[in-house]
């Protein structure tokens, strides 16, 4: 009798969608968007086919690091409400399959980006994958409450890679876009940690809320938001900024600062009273915040050839 007939008919057969879910499609959207903005904001134009292919390989590389993250963090994901439905804890995909997919796609994405764009972009993609999958996932996340702060850099590299795809080199503007995401990540995740209150405790992940308490986390959110606002508005006066970006930045940062101030003023009693309404609002605003900042950079870049964008 063959092995095939031994397979129980009731056993779940992983579908393509389950493997796709391993690539963290929602994170991939952010990676694609910020990388595209980085590429288009650069002062060098890219052939559409080369640009499309290069961004696709960046997205695949980011997805691969997501699969590696899910392989390593399967134990944590299984105890957190937010992640219990992921393919590995849900029993849809075996951990070994996630590892194989992550390694194979990482190698393919880096090699193809080297061919479609340049070696520096491929090197940065490899560095980003290793930073996220090894440095953040395997070490930082379980070791220090600064996990989100330092690990946030992994999510901040895509616009730099996009810029390098176009120019083949680094520049101050690329690092400003990096800094925007880097400074945005801690308040974004700490707000989430405040209202997903038991998740990180249950998983023994040393989030700031668990190790230093909630009042400290609230102070940290305000401090990072103040620094972020200075950076975001300051970026408006550089080569990637302009009147449109600056208008967006001022409005968004005033709203973000008000949200952070309200979070800082509250204690746990107030927060439990309205089921973390202020924290939830701040978290939702943070999603629009990043999207609109990069959207404004994109608008400036798109209008520049017509003499309208920039200063």
């Amino acid at each position: 009798m063959s092995d095939i007939t031994n397979t129980p008919a009731a056993e779940y057969e992983a579908q393509l969608g389950d493997y796709f879910a391993l690539l963290k499609p929602r994170v991939m959207q952010l990676v694609v968007f910020t990388a595209v903005v980085g590429m288009l904001a650069a002062p060098v134009s890219v052939h559409p086919v080369i640009g499309f292919a290069s961004i696709l390989f960046v997205a695949i590389g980011a997805g691969a690091s997501g699969a590696l993250n899910m392989w390593w963090d399967a134990d944590i994901d299984a105890v957190m409400k937010r992640t219990v439905g992921r393919p590995i804890p849900a029993g849809k995909v075996q951990p070994g399959e996630a590892l194989a997919l992550g390694v194979a796609l990482s190698g393919m994405a880096v090699m193809m980006l080297a061919l479609s764009a340049n070696l520096l972009a491929a090197g940065m993609l490899l560095f980003t994958i290793l930073f996220y999958a090894v440095f953040y996932t395997m070490w930082l996340k379980r070791a220090t409450p600064q996990n989100i702060v330092i690990g946030g850099a992994a999510g901040a590299f895509p616009p730099v890679i996009g810029w390098i795809i176009a120019t083949g080199s680094f520049s101050v503007e690329a690092w400003l876009m990096f800094a925007l995401i880097f400074m945005w990540t801690p308040p974004h995740f700490w707000a989430l940690a405040l209202f997903m209150r038991s998740d990180y405790d249950d998983a023994n992940v040393p989030m700031l809320t668990v190790t230093h308490g909630r009042p400290t986390t609230r102070r940290h959110i305000l401090a990072y938001t103040v620094l972020l606002a200075i950076l975001a508005i300051g970026t408006g006066f550089t080569a990637i900024g302009g009147y449109i970006y600056l208008s967006f930045a001022v409005v968004l940062n005033v709203l973000f600062l008000i949200g952070a101030y309200r979070i800082w003023q509250r204690d746990e009693g107030d927060a439990e009273g309205d089921n973390y309404e202020v924290e939830r609002k701040f978290f939702r605003l943070s999603l629009f915040y990043l999207f609109l900042h990069f959207g404004a950079i994109l608008i400036e870049a798109t209008l520049r050839p017509y003499g309208l964008g920039g200063w």
């Binding site: 063959s2 095939i4 007939t5 008919a9 057969e13 992983a14 579908q15 393509l16």
Partner: peptide, 21 residues
């Protein structure tokens, strides 16, 4: 026992295989 050409497994994996292809 002859192995059926269309085993249940083939049906369950069809979508996946077409997608990969």
């Amino acid at each position: 026992m002859p192995l059926n050409v269309e085993h249940d497994l083939h049906g369950r994996r069809k979508g996946r295989n077409v997608g990969v292809g």
